[in-house]
Simulated assay, not measured.
Amino acid sequence: MLKTNQDIVFIKCNKPKINELYEWIKFKSKKLKIKISKINHELIIKNYIDNFTGLINFINIISLIWPNKKINRKKIQQIIECENRFTYSQWINYIIKGNQEKTIKILQYFKIQNYSPVILIRVLQNFILNIINLKRKTKYCIYENYLNKNILTKNNNLEEKSKKINNKKLYNSIKLISLIELKIKRNFKKNVWLELINLSLTLC
């Protein structure tokens, strides 16, 4: 919470009140062009009232997965449950480390818990786009460097990983993503977990 008075900036470090969290979610949702109903604001605040960093990450995640769409309660609960156990960040970090065993283990957990493959595809797409940006040596990374700030830890070297993933691997990964999305569109209930495992291992 920031308050400005001419050239002076005051930083309020107190724990945000519930009404302040409501206003923040409302403001952030509007800025990121995501639609969250008031009743779902209550669910989000209930889970993140003592974890403002987690709240920021949560809002960023849903803005990446469902841009310009109304976010229903089921989708919100799915993200919260996933973040509270195995996280997308852990999954991506193990891919970066090349740890195939851990990568598969987390994917198996996602499958058992019936998480949406579409969410996983979006996270992987964002990861791949960051890799491509680093390969091109661009200073501006789309999604406001979301992966670098919130999913990747300081101990992981994304730039080093970008050097190890050659263009052929990137091409195969993008091709696999397209095939998975096409399969889901044709039949949403179709099992695509084997393809997701192959895609993750391609990037490991």
Score class of each variant (00 low, 15 high):
residue 144 E to V: 11
residue 100 Q to D: 09
residue 82 C to H: 06
residue 99 N to T: 09
residue 85 R to P: 02
residue 92 I to F: 03
residue 110 F to R: 09
residue 128 I to R: 02
residue 120 L to F: 09
residue 125 Q to T: 07
residue 77 Q to Y: 09
residue 127 F to Y: 14
residue 157 N to L: 11
residue 70 K to I: 10
residue 149 K to H: 10
residue 108 Q to D: 13
residue 138 T to I: 15
residue 116 S to F: 08
residue 80 I to K: 01
residue 163 K to G: 04
residue 62 I to N: 01
residue 66 W to K: 10
residue 87 T to Y: 00
residue 82 C to Q: 12
residue 87 T to R: 09
residue 98 G to Y: 06
residue 80 I to H: 03
residue 127 F to V: 05
residue 58 F to K: 05
residue 141 C to L: 13
residue 92 I to P: 01
residue 79 I to M: 01
residue 159 E to H: 13
residue 103 T to R: 05
residue 143 Y to W: 10
residue 148 N to I: 13
residue 75 K to I: 03
residue 131 I to G: 06
residue 54 G to M: 01
residue 109 Y to P: 06
residue 66 W to F: 12
residue 92 I to D: 02
residue 95 I to P: 04
residue 54 G to S: 01
residue 60 N to Q: 12
residue 161 K to G: 08
residue 69 K to P: 03
residue 123 V to W: 07
residue 141 C to Q: 14
residue 137 K to E: 09
residue 94 Y to G: 02
residue 101 E to L: 13
residue 162 S to W: 01
residue 146 Y to E: 11
residue 56 I to K: 12
residue 131 I to E: 01
residue 104 I to Y: 00
residue 76 I to E: 03
residue 119 I to T: 07
residue 160 E to V: 09
residue 165 I to L: 15
residue 59 I to R: 07
residue 114 N to C: 13
residue 134 L to C: 09
residue 73 R to Y: 03
residue 125 Q to H: 06
residue 152 L to M: 12
residue 124 L to P: 00
residue 65 I to K: 02
residue 96 I to R: 01
residue 142 I to A: 14
residue 116 S to C: 13
residue 143 Y to M: 11
residue 88 Y to W: 06
residue 76 I to Y: 06
residue 150 N to K: 14
residue 89 S to A: 15
residue 134 L to I: 09
residue 133 N to R: 09
residue 77 Q to R: 13
residue 97 K to S: 11
residue 66 W to D: 03
residue 100 Q to G: 05
residue 164 K to F: 07
residue 92 I to K: 02
residue 58 F to C: 03
residue 89 S to P: 06
residue 56 I to V: 15
residue 74 K to E: 12
residue 118 V to I: 15
residue 124 L to R: 05
residue 121 I to E: 07
residue 80 I to S: 02
residue 120 L to A: 03
residue 108 Q to V: 09
residue 125 Q to V: 06
residue 81 E to L: 13
residue 101 E to W: 00
residue 158 L to H: 08
residue 165 I to G: 05
residue 109 Y to C: 00
residue 90 Q to A: 06
residue 126 N to F: 00
residue 82 C to W: 04
residue 156 N to R: 13
residue 129 L to R: 15
residue 65 I to H: 01
residue 59 I to Y: 04
residue 69 K to T: 11
residue 127 F to E: 03
residue 156 N to C: 10
residue 150 N to P: 08
residue 131 I to R: 01
residue 115 Y to M: 10
residue 154 K to N: 00
residue 157 N to T: 12
residue 72 N to P: 05
residue 148 N to T: 13
residue 75 K to Y: 00
residue 164 K to I: 12
residue 54 G to L: 05
residue 71 I to H: 02
residue 117 P to K: 07
residue 155 N to I: 10
residue 96 I to L: 02
residue 135 K to S: 12
residue 78 Q to A: 11
residue 98 G to D: 03
residue 149 K to G: 01
